[in-house]
Amino acid sequence: MSEVLVLVDHVDGEVKKPTLELLAIAKRLGEPSAVFIGGADKAAAAGEKLKAFGAEKIYVVDDAEIKGYLVAPKAEALQQLVEKASPAAVLIVSGFEGKEIAGRLAIKTGSGLITDAVDVQEGPVTTQSVFAGNFTVTAKVTKGTPIITVKPNSATPEETAGAGTVEEFSPTISDGAKTAQIVASQPRQASGRPELNEAAIVVSGGRGTGGNFEPIEGLADALGAAVGASRAAVDSGWIPHNFQIGQTGKTVSPQLYIANGISGAIQHRAGMQTSKTIVAVNKDEEAPIFELVDFGVVGDLHSVLPAATEQINKRKG
């Protein structure tokens, strides 16, 4: 069986959940080989986790020399691994970086590229959700090595161990790849809440909050949810941009999405329309968001949310 390369998404060796999802997908297509690009000292801890979730092989690429540069060196490293391993596919998590690495890798290797898959099955045949979630598209790569970026929450991680054989790999990185420099990097502060694109429940607020996110945060904490926002709330400076959901923010696909004081513009829908269950609280019964909901409350979020939060906390005892 051919190898399937999975580029590991991690912060200082801490492997993120979407990578474990990719390992589960890789098993459907061949033998999962994780590609860890990072500090050599962090590789062991990451390797344990990758092995536990099914990696048969783990390529460790020490990033000491390329850490300070944007995407290009990573694409070069992957290109050399593709040449070496002739994999059945390369899987990368959909994010800014992931998509850019994939784009460059596609050109370097003369391969077809599919971005933002929400499912990948044998073939590999991918499923994508396009036009703000209004259409589902199935596609496949017809040239070279299929390079596929997959959205978080597209598969369930499977905790069945693989061989986890570690192999050091030292790519040759050209000077041309070391041009765009990361001058400074400020890791995002942990909010204590689940990460937006990994959360099972997302509670979000829009212009209707009037800038008061307490009712949103209260409900989120009662449900163990992540907090999100519309662009109107972000543009008003009420909440940082990394909370934004939608076309130019994050795409989420949780089990439950609760939109509060959000009208439901097409650009917002683009980021949440594939949520399994959708709930909205809005004082305008004509708000377009109500066209999407499984359950809606026409009312003022400033009274509905705190009351519901209290009831939920009581039920939990």
């Binding site: 596609a106 003369g110 391969s111 077809g112 590229l113 599919i114 045949v125 959700s129 979630g133 209004n134 259409f135 589902t136 598209v137 199935t138 596609a139 496949k140 790569v141 017809t142 040239k143 070279g144 329309q273």
Partner: peptide, 10 residues
């Protein structure tokens, strides 16, 4: 280099 096989309205 990639091919859409099918499109379905949601």
């Amino acid at each position: 280099w990639s091919e859409v096989e099918d499109t379905t309205a949601r």
